[in-house]
Amino acid sequence: MTKIIELKNVNKWFDKFQVLKDIDLEVAPQEKIVICGPSGSGKSTLIRCINRLEEHQEGNIIVDGTELAENTKNIEKIRAEVGMVFQQFNLFPHLSILDNCSLAPIWVKKLPKKQAEEIAMSNLKRVQIDDQALKFPGQLSGGQQQRAAIARALCMEPKIMLFDEPTSALDPEMIKEVLDVMVDLAKGGMTMIVVTHEMGFAKEVADYMIFMDEGKIVERAKTKEFFENPKSERTKLFLSQIL
């Protein structure tokens, strides 16, 4: 089966501190992967390397057949195919929710305005906030904002979705509404890489679990095996603390 994302021997440093060490990772289309691990283990950095919000110094990252390197044109093309959802939502506060969603399709994919807004509305409906379309981000609750951010990413019709701790900045009662949207998305066949501490979500949707510590992938296993029979001591310790 062809891989949609391939990371080979990736190393990355922040100044002298090595954040990623010899990362090898392959993701097939429609696979859902959940990355967990203690804070500072490099999980966010890893997925931010996949759409080159961070640059890696060694190794190869190949996304949908294109290698990420110093070539700007390719990077923008890749980013348009890889949706990303952030911990802090990062909606554009000066634009309405509808404009947040239709802006990139209009200006990056060059869709006509009407078509872009139709796509935006259908995605907002999918995350169930189509009734908030004309409001500004500051008028929405955290859970609604994060769902709008997911809709914004979906409007680019990406092949891959990256989630960087999407529920960590939310109140407990809002976490569920966001996770529901993500489960729905997973069932729709999207390729997803999710950094999260929500183990219930991981058990429900993940094909593979990845456990990272100190910049290394410590364990990569099928979800069931990962939770029932973790191999490394470090993983066992982490799971015992989090579950």
Partner: peptide
């Protein structure tokens, strides 16, 4: 915030579009 730049980039916007549509208006 840095997140605004990152969100714009993650949607596939290049330098000029990012600045014209997202960064400068704010």
């Amino acid at each position: 915030p840095k997140g605004q730049y990152e969100a714009a980039k993650s949607l596939g916007m290049g330098y000029w579009r990012m600045n014209a549509l997202i960064i400068l208006p704010q």
